[in-house]
Nucleic acid binder design. Structure first.
Lengths: 201, 201
DNA sequence: CGGGAGGTTGAACGTTTGTATAGCATCTTG
DNA sequence: CAAGATGCTATACAAACGTTCAACCTCCCG
């Protein structure tokens, strides 16, 4: 592992935890075990470092989505219940345990930056394509408004990642941990299969 | 409107737009039309101002939830489709158009602060109570895991507020605007009533 | 009318920030 | 082995930050 990589990873972790503005170049350097000057030497500026980290995280998401496109059988083979665990589950399983990427992604999606918008759009496109495949294969009912349905199901999955800490707080169990995931998937599968509202009204 | 209120509102708008760290005391003062010293005079410090704004936004959410509890008939009278528009719709309708509160709430919920946790928990409790009432009244199917269902439906609603800009980007219409809300509500009501997955699998 | 309390300002202070620069060490290459 | 590139550090600096402070203005109350 090169020092440049160390710096990038330290910055990723610190940005994810505290946010870009709250982290100083000196803190990043200390976490990476190098001098502050080296950070600037390698990345030009703090902003330059941010852009590299943004691209790095984006590329990880791209890998995940590409793997999903390359092997949709793995997804299609699974039944609806497991599928409804969704992209959040997929992301967590795809990354090493304790990775800072989900937390960084959370900030990226809410920063209003171009990088966040690009990631969301790619994710949405993959989501829409996947729903189209599932519908064609007969796993899903056809929707009257496929784009909205794709968006709805995508953000429902993302919400688990975005609000994971709050969910853990009120439920008493991490919805993306081993135990919580089981409970979560069962309930979501039920809701997505039978619905939650009655039809009388 | 006192100068203190002006400062608080200016800070609310700026914090919501750019984040706490990215906003300077001088910028807040300029936006409020006062001097930087007066900001500190009224709130003790920048952090003190933040806490006042946090409490102010929390109190607004409290008002909304209290109104919901006080007059559940208004909610219960509505049919399932309208209800599924959910808390996000309710929040937008409750606030003046163009209010910075939703954007501030977004940052509050993702900051990891105590204020955000408190707001989320209150919202969750209100959500769980509402679902219990709806179930008892026969508008909803009973769930095998009510806490998870309440959390699921709550974060689905919150996700629309949190990711509103991205949704507007990919859908081409604001899901909380007049037009988008209609499309969104219809699809969500359909998903929540009939489900999206088929039962064969 | 007098005087104190609170609202408000502008300048100043000390700190911290991101970054530039000069130099040292290490390695590669001809 | 010479020499230049590269990785890396330590110091320095200007700018911007949050905060302090002394002074001024404007009321209100006696």
């Amino acid at each position: 592992m090169t020092a440049r990589t160390h710096i990038r990873d330290a910055a990723l972790a610190l940005f994810a935890e505290r946010g870009f503005d709250a982290v100083t170049v000196r803190q990043i350097a200390a976490a990476a075990g190098v001098s502050a000057g080296l950070v600037v030497h390698h990345f030009g500026s703090k902003q330059g470092l941010r852009e590299v980290v943004d691209e790095y995280v984006s590329s990880i998401v791209d890998e995940l989505l590409a793997a999903l496109e390359a092997d949709p059988a793995a997804a299609l083979a699974a039944d609806g219940a497991q599928l409804s665990g969704g992209l959040g589950e997929l992301l967590i399983g795809f990354l090493p345990a304790g990775s800072a990427v989900p937390a960084y992604l959370r900030r990226l999606l809410l920063s209003g930056d171009t990088a966040g918008r690009t990631v969301f759009r790619r994710w949405y496109d993959a989501s829409a394509a996947m729903l189209a495949r599932l519908t064609e294969a007969g796993f899903m009912r056809a929707s009257a408004d496929p784009p909205v349905r794709a968006a709805f199901m995508l953000i429902n999955d993302l919400a688990v990642v975005l609000l994971r800490d709050h969910l853990t707080d009120v439920l008493g169990v991490d919805p993306l941990g081993p135990d919580g995931l089981r409970r979560w998937s069962v309930e979501v599968a039920a809701a997505y299969t039978r619905g939650v509202f009655t039809t009388e009204a």
